[in-house]
Design a binder for these strands. Structure first.
Lengths: 224, 224
DNA sequence: GTGGTTCTGTCATACAACTGTCATGAATCC
DNA sequence: GGATTCATGACAGTTGTATGACAGAACCAC
């Protein structure tokens, strides 16, 4: 089920967009203001956002920037203004597409599909990942090994989440430093140490790692 | 350096697009027909493709489908026709965006940037290549031979990735030195040595190489 | 606050693996 | 047959990784 958040202050347009999208099989979250939309998106994230530019209070541009601070969700601007300046500004703010009202429902949904097709590979959100008998649940803040919860420290947990999110892919020490520690620089040995500690808890035989494997010269990966 | 392939049969429009994009710092590959564009893209892939719909011979829709058979490159349709039916058909065929001529250069480049921003997150690096029963997975940092992982050193791995990325093409020792070692000069024999080591691991009979073949006087290639 | 506990980052060390150079011999070309 | 071009084994220096110890920081309960 695909959910779309529609942020549009004009009641009639919001309703007609909602009906049209529901007709096409989408679940629609509707919001009349940016504030409402942002709140809604935080509580119950939709897969795509449609946003008008002229909104009371926080305007569309600001709304897009605010969404983009934490969210990589596809954003389509639906605006009455057909002006290069607005289009460029909206795209620069972080929108993915810009269509001019009135827009044919068929075109809109085709654009949504194209965008989702492109975005899908990237939407590696913090979902639960299971790798063998190791289960990582980022939202729950817990890791289960053969169903038993593991006592991990915060750093170990974040490190494991990062590796789990990209299970099967090598992550360099540099990438891990940036994503887990938010260091732009720093001693890469630090990563080794924490991997070592993680192995003590995660591996059956920490001496010969089977899950948290080293790829010499490249980094570490969580074996699928 | 970002390269854009422009496929457009109208000389004037093609020229003006080319100039406008070059002004913005893009490298432009221009083609007047779909056939020419497809060939060009296969030989020298651009990062984004702009394509017209009405082309002599293979039309734009078919061109998009053909591109999509092997390539995940972002595609933007630039067409004179502002018709829902065409827009939907082009997006369904695999295009990522559709703009109507005449389009402001600023808008076009803003759309290109937005699309590349989105596409980059997804591709995040080179894709896996399979050549016969040898599978090279750059992101996983691993190489499988008949499904079994091979223990390669970093240099061997990078060398094989480079050869796999251009499977079937001869790469000179000089090219390999530049791309794998990032040397501008250096002893070309070094490449020989590492090819030799790689053969020990990759070839069934290292004495008579079947995959990593020498092209005397030119270099090496990975046999398709 | 205080005292105890846990966590974090730095360092030193030991070990294993990799790299580049060279010398030698084989294959190929003309 | 002589000259290139390539293959391969050995070797020493370099680099990459694992790990234990330790001191300061953060956290907790009281």
């Amino acid at each position: 089920m695909v959910a779309v958040l529609v942020i549009e202050d004009d009641d009639r347009i919001r309703l007609s967009l909602t009906l049209a999208l529901e007709d096409e099989g989408y679940t629609v979250h509707a919001a009349a203001t940016a504030e409402e939309g942002l709140l809604r998106q935080r509580r119950e994230p939709a897969d795509t956002v449609l946003v008008d530019l002229m909104l009371p209070g926080i305007d569309g541009f600001e709304c897009i920037r605010e969404l983009r601070r934490h969210d990589d969700v596809p954003i389509v601007v639906v605006s009455a203004r057909d002006d290069t300046h607005d289009i460029v500004a909206a795209l620069e703010a972080g929108a993915d597409d810009y269509v001019v009202k009135p827009v044919a429902t068929k075109e809109l949904t085709a654009r949504l599909r194209a965008l989702r097709r492109r975005a899908r590979a990237a939407t590696a959100g913090p979902r639960a990942t299971a790798v063998g008998d190791l289960e990582v649940r980022p939202q729950a803040g817990e890791v289960l090994l053969r169903g038993q919860p593991l006592a991990l420290t915060r750093t170990e947990f974040r490190l494991l989440c990062e590796l789990a999110e990209h299970a099967g892919q090598v992550l360099s020490r540099q990438q891990l430093l940036e994503r887990v520690w938010e260091y732009d620089f720093g001693d890469e040995r630090l990563v080794d140490v924490h991997i070592g500690r993680l192995r003590q808890k995660v591996e059956d035989d920490p001496g010969t790692p089977a899950r948290l494997v080293t790829v010499r010269g490249l980094g570490y990966k969580l074996q699928r």
